[in-house]
Nucleic acid binder design. Structure first.
Lengths: 133, 133
DNA sequence: ATGAATGCAAAAACTTTGCATGACG
DNA sequence: CGTCATGCAAAGTTTTTGCATTCAT
């Protein structure tokens, strides 16, 4: 289970790391802030410090287990890097985060970078939307 | 000059506001952090507090004079809202910020929001690139 | 056993706010 | 003149770091 995932990326198997991975895997909302994860740990009676949560999430990010997003609003949001690439839509009314995939946009981005003499390494696309009532 | 711009958006004409507007207009780099603006003020022998810089930039944003970006890395970057809409490319080697316009991407974004039953209100697209050497 | 990981508290980085003083219209 | 804006310092947020202790292998 989680132990293998951690070993695979060269991280020692420790209780905080296993627990945080479990929380991310079982979360109702795939997009959690460090604070969210911390609260979930408290909830689960696990005594892990907030500093450790940040450290572990950062390690997970470096290891490619997790993706960090900087949506508007100051704080980072983390998401398990499972599955294929996608971008996000944030509903400004409800705060809901919707994932979407679009190959045309991906292609266009590469094209644009090329046109300017660059290689596209990464990108960040967030649509801020309102539900049409 | 600047006085008119300020009056037009309903802001009292004060020295800090005029100075900050001038700095944004004459900046070598169109994308400045609050700290950058603050340093430019010091440079110009103008005694304006950092808190005022933040307050004024926020007011400018509300007034539509300025656009605030949250690129990766924690701090906000401000840009004069002159001209038409564009997105950004950040060179990961040099830190350069390149502006670009692409109508196809804009259209696709609207389409995607619609497909999910939303209205697109705003968006944030940043391409992280490396120059092909 | 030994080096890495953790918890705590302190610090850092960025931004906002309270309040007395000063400036705009 | 009344009100709004400013400066300063203090507080707020989010994230990082130092260090002694604990844990994994």
């Amino acid at each position: 289970m989680e132990n293998q995932e951690l070993r695979k990326v060269g991280l020692k198997v420790t209780l905080p790391r296993v627990k945080i991975l479990q929380i991310l895997e079982n979360a109702a909302d795939r997009h959690m802030s460090a604070e969210d994860v911390y609260k979930a740990l408290i909830e689960a009676e696990e005594d892990v410090g907030l500093a450790t949560v940040y450290r572990v999430l950062t390690q997970f990010e470096s290891a490619g287990l997790v993706i960090r997003h900087n949506f508007d609003g100051g704080h980072s949001v983390f998401e398990l890097a499972s599955g294929e690439h996608h971008d996000h839509m944030v509903c400004m009314d409800t705060g809901d985060i919707i994932e979407f995939r679009n190959q045309d946009i991906e292609r266009l981005q590469h094209m644009i970078a090329e046109e300017h003499g660059y290689d596209l390494v990464d990108h960040n696309l967030v649509l801020y939307v309102k539900s049409k009532r």
